[in-house]
Amino acid sequence: MASGTFGAPVRSRLQVTLGAPPAPPPGLRPFTGADVAPLAAAMWAAYRGTPDETDVGDLLGAAREIRLTLDGEYGAFLPGASFVADHGDRPVGAALVTFYKEDPLLAFLFTAPAHAGRGLGRALVKASMHALAGQGHATLSLAVTRRNRRARRLYDRLGFIEIA
């Protein structure tokens, strides 16, 4: 969400219309409560050094953001549309989806840097899109920092467009 605070990141709101996206690739699984601590480490690693670093702040802040998401701070958490990517026996990325202001919202998407560039972010978003379409939802929205070019390229390739 856009912020007028000096120094705070300015965000764009993006949205994609859900059709019948292909089934997500194998290797993803639904989010579980046991994922909070290991995903906090992946989230902090993913946010560190990016335009969104101040949103998380540190490892404890990442865990707090994940808990707030589960507790409904950004809308009702949708576990049936939230997915985790594992490497070996540990989570390395996630798409956390909520139901915010009458629409599904991709509240968080992140991949640990050691696993970036392998298509995990794309696969996670597609898994969420597929699940939401199957649940009868028509759109998926998100807020992205305007300076986060890497994320914006991903969302553009997935068909998201900027909305007012």
Rank of each mutant, 00 (worst) to 15 (best):
G61K: 00
P26H: 03
W44L: 10
A34G: 14
Y74S: 07
A62I: 11
P30S: 14
P21K: 00
G61Y: 03
L78P: 01
L18C: 03
A37C: 09
T50L: 10
P24M: 10
G49Y: 09
D35G: 08
L70K: 08
W44I: 08
L18I: 01
L39K: 07
A41G: 07
A46N: 07
L39S: 05
D58A: 06
A62R: 07
T32M: 05
L14H: 04
R64T: 14
T50E: 10
P25A: 14
V16G: 12
A42F: 04
L59R: 12
F31K: 03
E53V: 07
P51E: 11
F31M: 02
L14R: 08
P30H: 14
P51W: 11
G72F: 01
Q15I: 10
L14M: 13
A45N: 06
I66Y: 06
G72L: 06
F77R: 01
E65D: 13
G72Y: 00
E73L: 11
V56M: 07
V36K: 11
F77M: 09
P30C: 03
T54A: 15
R29C: 04
G75V: 10
A41I: 11
D58V: 06
L39C: 11
D52F: 05
A41Y: 05
A34P: 02
P26S: 02
T69F: 04
L78F: 08
Q15R: 15
R48Q: 15
P79R: 07
M43I: 04
L68S: 12
G33D: 15
G33T: 06
T17L: 14
F77P: 01
L18N: 01
A76T: 15
R64I: 13
D58H: 02
G33W: 05
P21G: 06
R48N: 11
L68Y: 11
L59M: 12
A63D: 10
A46S: 15
E73T: 15
V16F: 09
D58G: 10
E65Q: 15
V56C: 13
F31D: 05
F77Q: 00
R64H: 14
R67Y: 06
E53P: 09
L14T: 03
A23N: 03
P25N: 14
D55Q: 14
G33E: 14
A37W: 07
F77L: 04
R67L: 14
A46P: 10
R48T: 15
D71M: 13
G57V: 09
P30G: 12
P79K: 03
F77E: 07
G33I: 09
T50N: 12
G33P: 09
R64N: 11
Q15K: 12
L59C: 04
P26V: 00
G61R: 06
L28T: 04
A41E: 14
T69V: 13
M43R: 02
E73C: 13
T69D: 08
A40Y: 02
A42L: 08
L59Y: 06
L78Q: 02
T32D: 01
R29Q: 09
I66Q: 00
W44C: 10
P38M: 09
A23D: 03
A45S: 11
P26W: 08
L60H: 15
P21L: 00
A76I: 11
P24T: 10
T17D: 12
R67W: 11
G75I: 08
I66W: 00
A23Y: 02
A37Y: 04
G72A: 04
G72D: 09
I66R: 01
G57H: 05
G61I: 11
D58Q: 00
A45M: 11
G19R: 10
